[in-house]
Design a protein around this nucleic acid. Structure first.
Lengths: 216, 216
DNA sequence: TGAATTTCTGATTACAAAGTCAGAAATACT
DNA sequence: AGTATTTCTGACTTTGTAATCAGAAATTCA
């Protein structure tokens, strides 16, 4: 266990724990919790498997550490939204949706993990809800409710709208392997990304706002 | 191996192989290929684990057999579409989307499996593309292309539109555990289902058709 | 330099899960 | 009935993986 004592820590390679977290995030997001093995993570990080258990109690705790690292990056980018808290709800919602799409593209790991764990249920989903996605989900749902109350948005269940946004935003990115197999299309290219962002915004805003002409 | 010889087959329970396929489909779709164990499938089907290997070569072949059973059910329901081949493409597309949503609700197993394997890639995705989802994906994409060419649909990449339809349709259903944890909402109820269908159609058709008033 | 502390590893254990096999049980055929 | 064939099972082997641990290597501090 890494103890904070009087002496400064001794290090072999630079920032071993950080490299492990990065490797873990990469593999957990690409393969999911079960298929990502401790041995592979260790190899990716360039350490022995036992070192993983020195820095992290067990696989679940390593997973949580990787998630917290991801959260730190994303929370930073979401700070942009706080500047707009005084705008009307539909404007905030539009900004939030745009940001959601951008973050989904920049951090595909997040969408994959949410899709995997959100489907499976269980303790990892509980943890994700408490520490990563729950607060954001509920904030967005409140925003959607406000937009509905103000008459700007058609009266669909706000929570469902948020999850559909989540699914539509992450879908094309998550299903990149299927796009490749079924259509021989590489969606990781920049033009695909721009078209996708525009399409999702057109669909959700154009189809669900009561006055789409105010879309801008 | 089950051989078709002169003699009629001897049976203990009724239709053992069928019960195994049903149990397999249930568990594969709920847990995914890796987390569903042969032991659990055997228990669910009420047979010993060795019986699974008597009827099916290995786990992958059992998975394929379960998928083929699912395909038979769904192909039957999709036959409805053939009646409308002479309608204009945007009408066919609207019908297809509606059907897609209905099938997604009636057979949640399909959406979950596509999401899981479509994210992961690999031999199971290749197989699914060849036998289950590829033909439908490509047919829908052709339909969307035709609708775009006729000017009825905004000119977004047709393949992307299909995948987004897929994601939006299955999203709320797949992420039911997350809806429960984040919002304490049970989306399996009938009202939720009706609202969801209407919302997705409103979004995709209202936002992406050039003339949404023709939506009906 | 040498002792103390932290960091890391090879070797091993424990366990879960897929797959194998010899033979038992059930059924069909004569 | 008796024999052949199919269906099924308990016991076993093999493999992949998380977790453990004693001790080596590196680092810090006196």
């Amino acid at each position: 266990m890494a103890k904070a004592l009087a002496q400064a820590p001794a290090r072999k390679g630079p920032q071993t724990a950080i490299r492990i977290r990065e490797a873990a995030l990469e593999l957990f997001s690409r393969l999911g919790f079960e298929r990502a093995t401790m041995a592979e993570i260790a190899a990716e990080a360039g350490v022995s498997q036992a070192t993983l258990h020195y820095h992290f109690e067990d696989k679940f705790q390593l997973w949580r550490a990787a998630m917290l690292q991801l959260r730190a990056v994303i929370a930073e980018e979401e700070r942009l939204l706080e500047a707009a808290v005084d705008s009307p709800p539909e404007v905030q919602l539009r900004m939030a949706m745009r940001l959601f799409l951008q973050i989904s593209w920049r951090h595909p790991a997040l969408g994959r993990i949410v899709a995997l764990e959100g489907m499976a249920g269980g303790e990892r989903l509980e943890w994700l809800d408490a520490h990563l996605i729950g607060p954001r989900n509920r904030r967005l749902a409140e925003l959607a409710k406000a937009a509905i109350d103000s008459g700007a948005l058609k009266p669909f269940p706000a929570e469902m709208l948020i999850i559909t946004l989540q699914s539509a935003a992450a879908g094309v990115i998550n299903l990149a392997p299927m796009m490749a197999v079924s259509f021989d299309i590489d969606v990781t290219q920049a033009p695909a990304r721009a078209a996708h962002e525009q399409m999702v915004l057109d669909a959700l805003l154009g189809g669900l706002l009561t006055d789409p002409s105010a879309m801008t």
